[in-house]
Design a protein around this nucleic acid. Structure first.
Lengths: 232, 232
DNA sequence: ACGTATCGAGCGAACGCTCGCTCGAAAAAA
DNA sequence: TTTTTTCGAGCGAGCGTTCGCTCGATACGT
Protein backbone atom coordinates (compact mmCIF):
# COMPACT_ATOMS: atom_id res chain seq x y z
CA UNK A 1 0.00 0.00 0.00
CA UNK A 2 2.24 2.76 -1.25
CA UNK A 3 0.11 5.79 -0.57
CA UNK A 4 2.11 8.97 -0.23
CA UNK A 5 0.62 10.18 3.01
CA UNK A 6 2.70 13.36 3.16
CA UNK A 7 1.04 14.44 -0.05
CA UNK A 8 -2.39 14.53 1.55
CA UNK A 9 -1.81 16.61 4.67
CA UNK A 10 -3.71 19.85 4.92
CA UNK A 11 -0.38 21.65 4.83
CA UNK A 12 0.67 20.14 1.52
CA UNK A 13 -2.76 20.66 0.05
CA UNK A 14 -2.58 24.32 1.04
CA UNK A 15 0.74 24.60 -0.73
CA UNK A 16 -0.86 23.35 -3.94
CA UNK A 17 -3.75 25.69 -3.32
CA UNK A 18 -1.53 28.72 -2.84
CA UNK A 19 0.24 27.99 -6.08
CA UNK A 20 -2.99 27.47 -7.97
CA UNK A 21 -4.69 30.60 -6.58
CA UNK A 22 -1.87 33.13 -7.06
CA UNK A 23 -4.40 35.17 -8.97
CA UNK A 24 -6.85 35.62 -6.12
CA UNK A 25 -4.56 35.53 -3.08
CA UNK A 26 -3.29 39.05 -2.50
CA UNK A 27 -0.65 38.32 0.12
CA UNK A 28 2.81 38.29 -1.43
CA UNK A 29 5.13 36.70 1.09
CA UNK A 30 5.07 32.95 0.49
CA UNK A 31 5.68 31.78 4.04
CA UNK A 32 3.19 34.17 5.61
CA UNK A 33 0.57 33.32 3.03
CA UNK A 34 1.06 29.58 3.45
CA UNK A 35 0.89 29.73 7.23
CA UNK A 36 -2.30 31.76 7.28
CA UNK A 37 -3.92 29.88 4.44
CA UNK A 38 -3.43 26.75 6.49
CA UNK A 39 -5.18 28.30 9.46
CA UNK A 40 -8.01 29.61 7.29
CA UNK A 41 -8.64 26.34 5.47
CA UNK A 42 -8.45 24.23 8.60
CA UNK A 43 -10.93 26.49 10.36
CA UNK A 44 -13.19 26.69 7.31
CA UNK A 45 -13.33 22.91 7.06
CA UNK A 46 -14.05 22.48 10.74
CA UNK A 47 -16.75 25.13 10.92
CA UNK A 48 -18.29 24.02 7.65
CA UNK A 49 -18.41 20.38 8.60
CA UNK A 50 -20.02 21.07 11.93
CA UNK A 51 -22.68 23.55 10.83
CA UNK A 52 -22.65 23.60 7.05
CA UNK A 53 -20.78 25.91 4.70
CA UNK A 54 -23.67 28.22 4.15
CA UNK A 55 -24.32 28.52 7.90
CA UNK A 56 -20.67 29.29 8.57
CA UNK A 57 -20.38 33.06 8.59
CA UNK A 58 -17.20 34.87 7.73
CA UNK A 59 -17.38 36.33 11.22
CA UNK A 60 -17.19 32.81 12.62
CA UNK A 61 -14.20 32.23 10.40
CA UNK A 62 -12.65 35.52 11.44
CA UNK A 63 -13.05 34.66 15.13
CA UNK A 64 -11.65 31.18 14.68
CA UNK A 65 -8.62 32.21 12.63
CA UNK A 66 -7.79 35.36 14.53
CA UNK A 67 -7.87 37.27 11.27
CA UNK A 68 -10.08 40.26 10.66
CA UNK A 69 -12.82 40.35 8.08
CA UNK A 70 -10.63 42.36 5.74
CA UNK A 71 -7.72 40.06 6.45
CA UNK A 72 -9.67 37.09 5.20
CA UNK A 73 -10.41 38.82 1.94
CA UNK A 74 -6.71 38.85 1.14
CA UNK A 75 -7.05 35.09 0.62
CA UNK A 76 -10.27 34.87 -1.37
CA UNK A 77 -12.44 37.37 -3.17
CA UNK A 78 -15.78 35.84 -2.19
CA UNK A 79 -17.15 33.12 0.01
CA UNK A 80 -17.94 31.07 -3.09
CA UNK A 81 -14.33 31.32 -4.20
CA UNK A 82 -13.26 29.85 -0.88
CA UNK A 83 -15.61 26.94 -1.54
CA UNK A 84 -14.18 26.46 -5.01
CA UNK A 85 -10.62 26.52 -3.78
CA UNK A 86 -11.29 23.66 -1.39
CA UNK A 87 -13.28 21.64 -3.91
CA UNK A 88 -10.59 21.91 -6.52
CA UNK A 89 -7.90 20.50 -4.26
CA UNK A 90 -10.10 17.51 -3.43
CA UNK A 91 -10.77 16.58 -7.03
CA UNK A 92 -7.13 17.06 -8.00
CA UNK A 93 -6.00 14.87 -5.13
CA UNK A 94 -8.35 12.08 -6.21
CA UNK A 95 -6.87 12.19 -9.69
CA UNK A 96 -3.31 12.15 -8.36
CA UNK A 97 -3.88 9.17 -6.11
CA UNK A 98 -6.21 6.85 -8.02
CA UNK A 99 -4.89 7.29 -11.53
CA UNK A 100 -1.68 5.36 -10.98
CA UNK A 101 -2.01 1.96 -9.36
CA UNK A 102 1.30 0.29 -8.42
CA UNK A 103 2.83 -1.94 -11.07
CA UNK A 104 2.41 -5.21 -9.16
CA UNK A 105 -1.34 -4.81 -9.08
CA UNK A 106 -2.17 -4.22 -12.73
CA UNK A 107 -2.02 -7.82 -13.82
CA UNK A 108 -4.31 -9.11 -11.08
CA UNK A 109 -7.90 -7.82 -11.31
CA UNK A 110 -8.85 -8.84 -7.77
CA UNK A 111 -5.74 -7.19 -6.36
CA UNK A 112 -6.42 -4.14 -8.47
CA UNK A 113 -9.92 -3.83 -7.03
CA UNK A 114 -8.56 -4.35 -3.53
CA UNK A 115 -6.02 -1.65 -4.14
CA UNK A 116 -8.60 0.81 -5.46
CA UNK A 117 -10.80 0.24 -2.45
CA UNK A 118 -7.99 0.53 0.06
CA UNK A 119 -6.42 3.56 -1.60
CA UNK A 120 -9.72 5.37 -1.78
CA UNK A 121 -10.66 4.71 1.83
CA UNK A 122 -7.20 5.54 3.14
CA UNK A 123 -7.21 8.74 1.14
CA UNK A 124 -10.59 9.81 2.45
CA UNK A 125 -9.39 9.03 5.96
CA UNK A 126 -6.33 11.23 5.60
CA UNK A 127 -8.36 13.99 3.98
CA UNK A 128 -11.52 13.39 5.93
CA UNK A 129 -12.57 17.01 6.51
CA UNK A 130 -11.95 17.77 2.85
CA UNK A 131 -14.08 14.90 1.59
CA UNK A 132 -16.82 15.52 4.10
CA UNK A 133 -16.88 19.09 2.91
CA UNK A 134 -16.96 18.20 -0.77
CA UNK A 135 -19.62 15.58 -0.31
CA UNK A 136 -21.88 17.35 2.17
CA UNK A 137 -21.86 20.70 0.46
CA UNK A 138 -22.11 19.46 -3.11
CA UNK A 139 -25.90 19.35 -3.09
CA UNK A 140 -26.28 23.10 -2.63
CA UNK A 141 -23.57 24.20 -5.00
CA UNK A 142 -24.26 26.53 -7.85
CA UNK A 143 -24.78 24.53 -11.02
CA UNK A 144 -21.25 24.97 -12.37
CA UNK A 145 -19.63 23.68 -9.18
CA UNK A 146 -22.05 20.79 -8.96
CA UNK A 147 -21.09 19.64 -12.42
CA UNK A 148 -17.48 19.50 -11.33
CA UNK A 149 -18.47 17.34 -8.37
CA UNK A 150 -20.52 15.01 -10.56
CA UNK A 151 -17.71 14.62 -13.05
CA UNK A 152 -15.20 13.95 -10.33
CA UNK A 153 -17.44 11.19 -9.06
CA UNK A 154 -17.84 9.74 -12.54
CA UNK A 155 -14.06 9.67 -12.83
CA UNK A 156 -13.76 7.64 -9.64
CA UNK A 157 -16.40 5.26 -10.89
CA UNK A 158 -14.54 4.82 -14.17
CA UNK A 159 -11.54 3.41 -12.32
CA UNK A 160 -13.76 0.67 -10.94
CA UNK A 161 -15.43 0.07 -14.30
CA UNK A 162 -12.02 -0.49 -15.88
CA UNK A 163 -10.85 -2.87 -13.16
CA UNK A 164 -14.02 -4.95 -13.28
CA UNK A 165 -14.15 -5.15 -17.06
CA UNK A 166 -10.54 -6.24 -17.07
CA UNK A 167 -11.36 -8.97 -14.54
CA UNK A 168 -14.22 -10.27 -16.64
CA UNK A 169 -12.18 -10.13 -19.84
CA UNK A 170 -9.45 -12.17 -18.21
CA UNK A 171 -12.00 -14.72 -17.05
CA UNK A 172 -11.08 -14.12 -13.43
CA UNK A 173 -14.41 -12.52 -12.53
CA UNK A 174 -17.84 -14.00 -13.11
CA UNK A 175 -19.31 -12.86 -16.42
CA UNK A 176 -22.55 -11.93 -14.67
CA UNK A 177 -21.12 -9.25 -12.39
CA UNK A 178 -23.94 -6.68 -12.09
CA UNK A 179 -23.49 -3.76 -14.46
CA UNK A 180 -24.37 -1.41 -11.63
CA UNK A 181 -21.66 -2.67 -9.30
CA UNK A 182 -19.13 0.11 -9.98
CA UNK A 183 -21.81 2.69 -9.24
CA UNK A 184 -22.70 0.91 -6.02
CA UNK A 185 -19.14 0.65 -4.72
CA UNK A 186 -18.94 4.43 -4.49
CA UNK A 187 -21.53 4.81 -1.72
CA UNK A 188 -19.76 2.08 0.23
CA UNK A 189 -16.57 4.09 0.13
CA UNK A 190 -18.34 7.33 1.00
CA UNK A 191 -20.06 5.65 3.93
CA UNK A 192 -16.73 5.48 5.75
CA UNK A 193 -16.13 9.19 5.98
CA UNK A 194 -19.75 10.32 6.01
CA UNK A 195 -20.67 8.09 8.97
CA UNK A 196 -17.27 8.12 10.58
CA UNK A 197 -18.67 8.91 14.03
CA UNK A 198 -20.92 5.87 13.89
CA UNK A 199 -18.08 3.46 13.16
CA UNK A 200 -15.88 5.04 15.78
CA UNK A 201 -18.65 4.53 18.29
CA UNK A 202 -18.85 0.88 17.28
CA UNK A 203 -15.09 0.41 17.42
CA UNK A 204 -14.83 -0.48 13.75
CA UNK A 205 -11.28 0.22 12.63
CA UNK A 206 -10.48 1.52 9.19
CA UNK A 207 -8.64 -1.71 8.43
CA UNK A 208 -11.69 -3.77 9.34
CA UNK A 209 -13.88 -1.55 7.20
CA UNK A 210 -11.55 -1.83 4.22
CA UNK A 211 -11.38 -5.60 4.61
CA UNK A 212 -15.16 -5.88 4.70
CA UNK A 213 -15.69 -3.85 1.56
CA UNK A 214 -12.99 -5.83 -0.21
CA UNK A 215 -14.58 -9.07 0.97
CA UNK A 216 -18.03 -8.01 -0.20
CA UNK A 217 -16.83 -6.94 -3.62
CA UNK A 218 -14.86 -10.14 -4.02
CA UNK A 219 -17.88 -12.25 -3.14
CA UNK A 220 -19.81 -10.45 -5.85
CA UNK A 221 -17.15 -10.67 -8.52
CA UNK A 222 -15.39 -13.98 -8.00
CA UNK A 223 -16.82 -17.40 -8.58
CA UNK A 224 -17.32 -18.45 -4.98
CA UNK A 225 -14.21 -19.85 -3.32
CA UNK A 226 -16.19 -20.56 -0.16
CA UNK A 227 -13.10 -20.25 2.04
CA UNK A 228 -14.68 -21.29 5.32
CA UNK A 229 -16.55 -24.59 5.24
CA UNK A 230 -19.96 -24.33 6.82
CA UNK A 231 -22.50 -26.88 7.91
CA UNK A 232 -25.89 -27.92 6.52
CA UNK B 1 -45.15 -6.64 -2.93
CA UNK B 2 -48.08 -5.31 -0.95
CA UNK B 3 -46.96 -1.75 -0.30
CA UNK B 4 -49.84 0.60 0.45
CA UNK B 5 -48.94 3.36 -1.98
CA UNK B 6 -51.85 5.60 -1.05
CA UNK B 7 -50.44 5.77 2.45
CA UNK B 8 -47.29 7.47 1.26
CA UNK B 9 -48.63 10.34 -0.84
CA UNK B 10 -47.80 13.82 0.33
CA UNK B 11 -51.49 14.38 0.86
CA UNK B 12 -51.87 11.46 3.25
CA UNK B 13 -48.68 12.34 5.05
CA UNK B 14 -49.98 15.86 5.56
CA UNK B 15 -53.14 14.43 7.05
CA UNK B 16 -51.07 12.53 9.61
CA UNK B 17 -49.04 15.65 10.17
CA UNK B 18 -52.08 17.82 10.78
CA UNK B 19 -53.37 15.36 13.33
CA UNK B 20 -50.04 15.10 15.08
CA UNK B 21 -49.43 18.86 15.17
CA UNK B 22 -52.81 20.01 16.44
CA UNK B 23 -50.90 21.77 19.18
CA UNK B 24 -48.84 24.00 16.92
CA UNK B 25 -51.14 24.48 13.95
CA UNK B 26 -53.41 27.39 14.76
CA UNK B 27 -55.86 27.04 11.90
CA UNK B 28 -59.04 25.38 13.11
CA UNK B 29 -60.96 24.37 10.03
CA UNK B 30 -59.76 20.90 9.04
CA UNK B 31 -60.26 21.14 5.30
CA UNK B 32 -58.68 24.57 4.98
CA UNK B 33 -55.75 23.55 7.15
CA UNK B 34 -55.16 20.33 5.22
CA UNK B 35 -55.27 22.01 1.84
CA UNK B 36 -52.81 24.73 2.80
CA UNK B 37 -50.55 22.44 4.77
CA UNK B 38 -50.21 20.42 1.61
CA UNK B 39 -49.16 23.47 -0.36
CA UNK B 40 -46.73 24.56 2.34
CA UNK B 41 -45.05 21.18 2.75
CA UNK B 42 -44.79 20.54 -0.97
CA UNK B 43 -43.18 23.94 -1.48
CA UNK B 44 -40.91 23.55 1.54
CA UNK B 45 -39.65 20.19 0.27
CA UNK B 46 -39.03 21.51 -3.21
CA UNK B 47 -37.26 24.68 -2.11
CA UNK B 48 -35.27 22.85 0.52
CA UNK B 49 -34.14 20.11 -1.78
CA UNK B 50 -32.99 22.51 -4.44
CA UNK B 51 -31.14 25.03 -2.28
CA UNK B 52 -30.96 23.54 1.22
CA UNK B 53 -33.24 24.07 4.18
CA UNK B 54 -31.01 26.71 5.72
CA UNK B 55 -30.88 28.65 2.50
CA UNK B 56 -34.63 28.51 1.99
CA UNK B 57 -35.98 31.71 3.49
CA UNK B 58 -39.51 31.98 4.78
CA UNK B 59 -39.97 34.71 2.20
CA UNK B 60 -39.18 32.19 -0.51
CA UNK B 61 -41.75 29.91 1.05
CA UNK B 62 -44.25 32.74 1.33
CA UNK B 63 -43.82 33.62 -2.33
CA UNK B 64 -44.09 30.00 -3.44
CA UNK B 65 -47.18 29.17 -1.38
CA UNK B 66 -49.03 32.43 -1.91
CA UNK B 67 -49.34 32.79 1.86
CA UNK B 68 -48.07 35.82 3.74
CA UNK B 69 -45.32 35.65 6.31
CA UNK B 70 -47.85 35.83 9.09
CA UNK B 71 -50.03 33.28 7.39
CA UNK B 72 -47.24 30.74 7.40
CA UNK B 73 -46.87 31.08 11.14
CA UNK B 74 -50.35 29.68 11.59
CA UNK B 75 -48.87 26.32 10.54
CA UNK B 76 -45.63 26.29 12.53
CA UNK B 77 -44.23 28.36 15.34
CA UNK B 78 -40.65 28.44 14.07
CA UNK B 79 -38.64 27.38 11.06
CA UNK B 80 -37.12 24.59 13.13
CA UNK B 81 -40.57 23.28 14.00
CA UNK B 82 -41.32 23.05 10.29
CA UNK B 83 -38.20 20.94 9.91
CA UNK B 84 -39.25 18.72 12.79
CA UNK B 85 -42.73 18.20 11.42
CA UNK B 86 -41.36 16.88 8.15
CA UNK B 87 -38.71 14.74 9.81
CA UNK B 88 -41.21 13.13 12.10
CA UNK B 89 -43.49 12.00 9.28
CA UNK B 90 -40.56 10.38 7.50
CA UNK B 91 -39.45 8.38 10.51
CA UNK B 92 -43.00 7.34 11.34
CA UNK B 93 -43.59 6.22 7.76
CA UNK B 94 -40.46 4.08 7.85
CA UNK B 95 -41.72 2.39 11.00
CA UNK B 96 -45.16 1.81 9.53
CA UNK B 97 -43.85 0.24 6.35
CA UNK B 98 -40.84 -1.79 7.39
CA UNK B 99 -42.02 -3.12 10.72
CA UNK B 100 -44.54 -5.54 9.31
CA UNK B 101 -43.31 -7.84 6.59
CA UNK B 102 -46.02 -9.96 4.90
CA UNK B 103 -46.64 -13.36 6.44
CA UNK B 104 -45.34 -15.38 3.50
CA UNK B 105 -41.91 -13.85 3.84
CA UNK B 106 -41.14 -14.40 7.49
CA UNK B 107 -40.08 -18.01 7.21
CA UNK B 108 -37.68 -17.45 4.34
CA UNK B 109 -34.66 -15.30 5.24
CA UNK B 110 -33.64 -14.64 1.65
CA UNK B 111 -37.17 -13.61 0.74
CA UNK B 112 -37.32 -11.47 3.85
CA UNK B 113 -34.17 -9.61 2.83
CA UNK B 114 -35.49 -9.22 -0.70
CA UNK B 115 -38.71 -7.81 0.71
CA UNK B 116 -36.92 -5.35 2.99
CA UNK B 117 -34.81 -4.09 0.12
CA UNK B 118 -37.73 -3.76 -2.27
CA UNK B 119 -40.05 -2.17 0.28
CA UNK B 120 -37.42 0.36 1.32
CA UNK B 121 -36.53 1.39 -2.20
CA UNK B 122 -40.15 1.59 -3.30
CA UNK B 123 -40.98 3.66 -0.26
CA UNK B 124 -38.14 6.10 -0.87
CA UNK B 125 -39.24 6.38 -4.48
CA UNK B 126 -42.78 7.30 -3.49
CA UNK B 127 -41.58 9.70 -0.81
CA UNK B 128 -38.50 10.87 -2.61
CA UNK B 129 -38.59 14.57 -1.66
CA UNK B 130 -39.20 13.62 1.96
CA UNK B 131 -36.25 11.27 2.13
CA UNK B 132 -33.97 13.59 0.27
CA UNK B 133 -34.91 16.25 2.77
CA UNK B 134 -34.35 14.05 5.80
CA UNK B 135 -31.08 12.66 4.55
CA UNK B 136 -29.51 15.71 2.96
CA UNK B 137 -30.41 18.16 5.66
CA UNK B 138 -29.64 15.90 8.60
CA UNK B 139 -25.98 16.95 8.73
CA UNK B 140 -26.81 20.53 9.56
CA UNK B 141 -29.66 19.94 11.95
CA UNK B 142 -29.55 21.20 15.49
CA UNK B 143 -28.25 18.46 17.76
CA UNK B 144 -31.64 17.26 18.97
CA UNK B 145 -32.98 16.83 15.45
CA UNK B 146 -29.81 15.10 14.32
CA UNK B 147 -30.20 12.51 17.04
CA UNK B 148 -33.66 11.70 15.75
CA UNK B 149 -32.24 11.17 12.28
CA UNK B 150 -29.46 8.94 13.58
CA UNK B 151 -31.89 6.84 15.60
CA UNK B 152 -34.26 6.48 12.68
CA UNK B 153 -31.37 5.18 10.62
CA UNK B 154 -30.37 2.76 13.36
CA UNK B 155 -33.92 1.45 13.37
CA UNK B 156 -33.80 0.73 9.65
CA UNK B 157 -30.49 -1.03 10.11
CA UNK B 158 -31.95 -3.17 12.89
CA UNK B 159 -34.50 -4.66 10.49
CA UNK B 160 -31.64 -5.90 8.34
CA UNK B 161 -29.68 -7.14 11.34
CA UNK B 162 -32.66 -9.23 12.42
CA UNK B 163 -33.24 -10.69 8.97
CA UNK B 164 -29.59 -11.60 8.49
CA UNK B 165 -29.19 -13.12 11.95
CA UNK B 166 -32.29 -15.17 11.34
CA UNK B 167 -30.86 -16.42 8.07
CA UNK B 168 -27.61 -17.45 9.72
CA UNK B 169 -29.43 -19.11 12.63
CA UNK B 170 -31.51 -21.13 10.21
CA UNK B 171 -28.38 -22.20 8.36
CA UNK B 172 -29.64 -20.64 5.15
CA UNK B 173 -26.99 -17.92 5.09
CA UNK B 174 -23.26 -18.37 5.32
CA UNK B 175 -22.01 -18.13 8.89
CA UNK B 176 -19.30 -15.72 7.77
CA UNK B 177 -21.60 -12.96 6.52
CA UNK B 178 -19.68 -9.75 7.34
CA UNK B 179 -20.84 -8.18 10.59
CA UNK B 180 -20.87 -4.81 8.86
CA UNK B 181 -23.21 -5.90 6.09
CA UNK B 182 -26.41 -4.44 7.57
CA UNK B 183 -24.67 -1.09 7.98
CA UNK B 184 -23.47 -1.24 4.39
CA UNK B 185 -26.85 -2.06 2.88
CA UNK B 186 -28.18 1.29 4.04
CA UNK B 187 -26.00 3.43 1.75
CA UNK B 188 -26.98 1.18 -1.17
CA UNK B 189 -30.61 1.99 -0.51
CA UNK B 190 -29.93 5.69 -0.04
CA UNK B 191 -27.97 5.79 -3.26
CA UNK B 192 -31.19 5.31 -5.20
CA UNK B 193 -32.90 8.48 -4.09
CA UNK B 194 -29.79 10.58 -3.52
CA UNK B 195 -28.43 9.97 -7.02
CA UNK B 196 -31.78 9.59 -8.70
CA UNK B 197 -30.86 11.94 -11.52
CA UNK B 198 -27.80 9.90 -12.38
CA UNK B 199 -29.76 6.66 -12.76
CA UNK B 200 -32.47 8.34 -14.75
CA UNK B 201 -29.84 9.65 -17.11
CA UNK B 202 -28.48 6.12 -17.49
CA UNK B 203 -31.92 4.62 -18.02
CA UNK B 204 -31.69 2.42 -14.95
CA UNK B 205 -35.22 1.56 -13.85
CA UNK B 206 -36.17 1.22 -10.21
CA UNK B 207 -36.91 -2.46 -10.82
CA UNK B 208 -33.45 -3.04 -12.23
CA UNK B 209 -31.90 -1.20 -9.30
CA UNK B 210 -33.86 -3.24 -6.79
CA UNK B 211 -32.93 -6.48 -8.53
CA UNK B 212 -29.25 -5.57 -8.50
CA UNK B 213 -29.17 -4.75 -4.80
CA UNK B 214 -31.04 -7.96 -4.03
CA UNK B 215 -28.63 -9.90 -6.21
CA UNK B 216 -25.61 -8.38 -4.54
CA UNK B 217 -26.86 -9.02 -1.04
CA UNK B 218 -27.75 -12.59 -1.94
CA UNK B 219 -24.31 -13.23 -3.34
CA UNK B 220 -22.84 -12.05 -0.06
CA UNK B 221 -25.17 -14.01 2.20
CA UNK B 222 -25.88 -17.26 0.41
CA UNK B 223 -23.45 -20.08 -0.14
CA UNK B 224 -22.82 -19.60 -3.81
CA UNK B 225 -25.38 -21.27 -6.07
CA UNK B 226 -23.47 -20.11 -9.11
CA UNK B 227 -26.62 -20.00 -11.24
CA UNK B 228 -24.92 -19.22 -14.53
CA UNK B 229 -22.04 -21.51 -15.46
CA UNK B 230 -19.05 -19.52 -16.58
CA UNK B 231 -15.99 -20.42 -18.56
CA UNK B 232 -12.39 -19.99 -17.75
C1' DA C 1 -85.66 37.11 6.08
C1' DC C 2 -82.78 40.43 7.77
C1' DG C 3 -79.51 42.98 10.63
C1' DT C 4 -75.95 42.40 13.88
C1' DA C 5 -72.24 40.26 16.52
C1' DT C 6 -68.55 37.18 16.48
C1' DC C 7 -65.01 34.54 14.60
C1' DG C 8 -60.57 33.40 12.78
C1' DA C 9 -57.67 32.90 8.53
C1' DG C 10 -54.75 35.72 6.53
C1' DC C 11 -52.05 39.96 5.91
C1' DG C 12 -47.64 42.68 5.65
C1' DA C 13 -44.96 46.44 7.72
C1' DA C 14 -41.66 46.65 11.10
C1' DC C 15 -38.18 44.92 14.57
C1' DG C 16 -33.69 43.50 16.00
C1' DC C 17 -30.14 41.16 14.14
C1' DT C 18 -26.61 38.95 11.11
C1' DC C 19 -25.09 38.43 6.66
C1' DG C 20 -21.20 39.05 2.84
C1' DC C 21 -18.44 42.50 1.63
C1' DT C 22 -15.77 47.27 1.35
C1' DC C 23 -12.39 50.68 2.24
C1' DG C 24 -9.62 54.23 4.43
C1' DA C 25 -6.39 54.18 7.88
C1' DA C 26 -3.02 52.13 11.08
C1' DA C 27 0.84 49.05 11.61
C1' DA C 28 4.69 46.51 10.05
C1' DA C 29 8.25 45.48 6.93
C1' DA C 30 11.52 46.76 3.64
C1' DT D 1 9.94 56.85 2.88
C1' DT D 2 7.55 53.46 0.36
C1' DT D 3 5.33 49.18 0.04
C1' DT D 4 2.86 45.50 2.01
C1' DT D 5 -0.24 43.62 5.32
C1' DT D 6 -3.78 43.88 8.58
C1' DC D 7 -7.46 46.03 10.80
C1' DG D 8 -12.43 46.76 11.98
C1' DA D 9 -16.25 50.12 11.63
C1' DG D 10 -19.71 50.39 8.54
C1' DC D 11 -22.93 49.44 4.37
C1' DG D 12 -27.16 47.73 2.44
C1' DA D 13 -29.66 43.58 2.02
C1' DG D 14 -32.03 40.03 3.89
C1' DC D 15 -33.01 37.04 7.82
C1' DG D 16 -36.75 34.83 11.28
C1' DT D 17 -40.28 36.46 13.91
C1' DT D 18 -44.15 39.43 15.73
C1' DC D 19 -48.48 41.78 16.01
C1' DG D 20 -52.17 45.08 15.18
C1' DC D 21 -55.19 44.72 11.78
C1' DT D 22 -58.70 43.36 7.85
C1' DC D 23 -62.68 41.26 6.16
C1' DG D 24 -65.51 37.53 4.38
C1' DA D 25 -68.01 33.79 6.44
C1' DT D 26 -70.77 32.09 10.00
C1' DA D 27 -74.15 32.18 13.98
C1' DC D 28 -77.70 34.26 16.24
C1' DG D 29 -81.61 37.36 17.82
C1' DT D 30 -85.58 39.21 16.19
Amino acid sequence: MALDTTDLTTETLCRYMLERQRGTIIVQKQDVALRKLNVIIAAALELSNSKGFQAMSLRDLSRETGLSMGGLYAYFDSKTTLLNMILMEVTEAVKRVLSDPPEEVRQDPAARLDWLIEAHIRMTELMQPWFTFAFMEAKNFPQAERRIAVESEALTESYFVAAIEDGIARGVFRPDVPALLPALIKPLLQEWYVKRAKYKRRDVSMEAYIATVQDIVRRICLPQADPIPHGR
